[in-house]
Amino acid sequence: MKVLASYNIKGGVGKTAAAVNLAYLAAQEGWRTLVWDLDPQGSASFYFRIKPKVKKGAKALLKHKRQLADAIKGTDFERLDLVPADFSYRNLDLYLDDTKNSDGHLGELISQVDAEYDYLFIDCAPGISRVSEAVFQAADALLIPVIPTTLSLRTLKQLLRFREKTQLSELKLLPFFSLVDRRKTLHRTIIENPPFQASLWLKSTIPYSSVVEQMGTHRTPLFCYANGDNAAKAFLSLWQEIEQTLAT
């Protein structure tokens, strides 16, 4: 099972939009796919119309009182399942502190469903915390949506530095530009001359599109109501690029 975490220190950059839509594409392609909504706000759960509730909460999972598999809910789509968010996730840091080897612990939990799925998408809460460190340990790659503004780039820099410090060299970082508005000069300039090394960035970008915003009213991945839209095409091309990158 490949573990991909949709992550950024910042909120509102398109992490959840990416996790939900990319997971949908993976499942469509034939892969058994699981999304773990790790953000206590529960947006991913909301998009799949699943109650943001895990019986007995995060603590029971981390203490092995309950199996991760028992928390899984099927979505309306074939091969696509979800571990819902839960309000208790806001205390995940504390529970992780409680357990020995807290960073490896999440990976161990995830390994329970290793044989059942081909892909796991983790939709992370913003911020950098104990939880995000544990996610970095467990993940094969981080999908990092970045809005092409100076401020956003700063947070990416923080993340790059953090990776160096924590010796997570195995972890692939896959940043891509999100919420791109081509009418804005700043957006255009940054995308044409991406900072750090150009090779760091995925080529595909996700445009700013009202269709993506409408996921909130449709409560489905956007392919179910706007399959031909540019944003849909952008996610498809992003997914293909991610698959290729992971294969090498």
Partner: peptide, 9 residues
Amino acid sequence: LDVVPVRGY
């Protein structure tokens, strides 16, 4: 006729 449960329900 096949009744297919959705996982978790």
